[in-house]
C-alpha cells in the first residue's frame, strides 16, 4: 500500500485497539461486551495486515499464535464454569464472586472475566480466519 495508507493506519490502529478493550471491560455497564469488543480488536489486526502486508513466514507464525490464543481463551471460559461448580452451589456458570454495587466498574462478579475470555476468543477466531484466507491466496499464486 502507499505511504499515506500506512501512516494513517499507524495513527488509527492503536485507537481502535484501545476502543475494543474499553468495550470489553465496560461490557456489564454500557452497550457492548465480549462479542462486540472482540470483533473490533480483530478489525484492528485485519487493518494492520491489509495496510502493511507481510511475508509468508510472519503470516504463518501469526496464524499459529492466534490459533493458540483462541484455544486458550475457550479453555479459560470452560475452567471458569467448572470452578463455579466446585465453589458455588454445584451449578455450572454460578456467579460466585461478590456482586458489588450496580454501576461500578468492578461489580457483577465473574461476568467481566467471562467477557474478557469471550473477547479474546472472538478476536483470535476472526483473525485466524482472515489469515487462513490470505495465506491460501498467497500460496496458490
Amino acid at each position: 500500500m502507499t505511504s499515506i495508507v500506512k501512516t494513517v493506519t499507524r495513527l488509527v490502529v492503536g485507537v481502535i485497539f484501545i476502543y475494543g478493550i474499553y468495550i470489553i471491560l465496560h461490557g456489564h455497564l454500557t452497550p457492548g461486551g465480549g462479542f462486540a469488543g472482540g470483533a473490533i480488536i480483530a478489525g484492528a489486526f485485519i487493518l494492520l495486515v491489509l495496510a502493511y502486508g507481510s511475508d509468508m513466514l510472519k503470516l504463518k507464525a501469526k496464524e499459529a499464535g492466534s490459533s493458540v490464543m483462541e484455544s486458550l481463551a475457550i479453555l479459560a471460559f470452560l475452567l471458569m464454569a467448572v470452578v463455579a461448580f466446585f465453589l458455588g452451589t454445584k451449578v455450572f456458570f454460578h456467579n460466585y464472586l461478590p456482586k458489588g454495587i450496580i454501576g461500578d466498574l468492578i461489580s457483577a462478579g465473574v461476568i467481566p472475566l467471562y467477557n474478557i475470555a469471550v473477547g479474546i476468543e472472538v478476536a483470535a477466531a476472526l483473525f485466524t480466519i482472515f489469515l487462513a484466507l490470505v495465506i491460501f491466496k498467497e500460496e496458490s499464486k
Binding site: H28, L29, F93, N95, G100, I102, A108, G109, I111, E121
Partner: peptide, 29 residues
C-alpha cells in the same frame, strides 16, 4: 447478576450454556 447491562447479564449468567455453545461453534468453524 449485578450487571447493569441486562443483555450481558442474561448472556453470561442465566444463559451461560448458550454462550458456551456459541464459543464451541466458533472454534469448530
Amino acid at each position: 447478576t449485578g450487571s447493569a447491562n441486562l443483555v450481558t447479564g442474561i448472556l453470561f449468567d442465566f444463559r451461560g450454556y448458550d454462550t458456551l455453545g456459541e464459543a464451541t461453534i466458533l472454534f469448530t468453524a
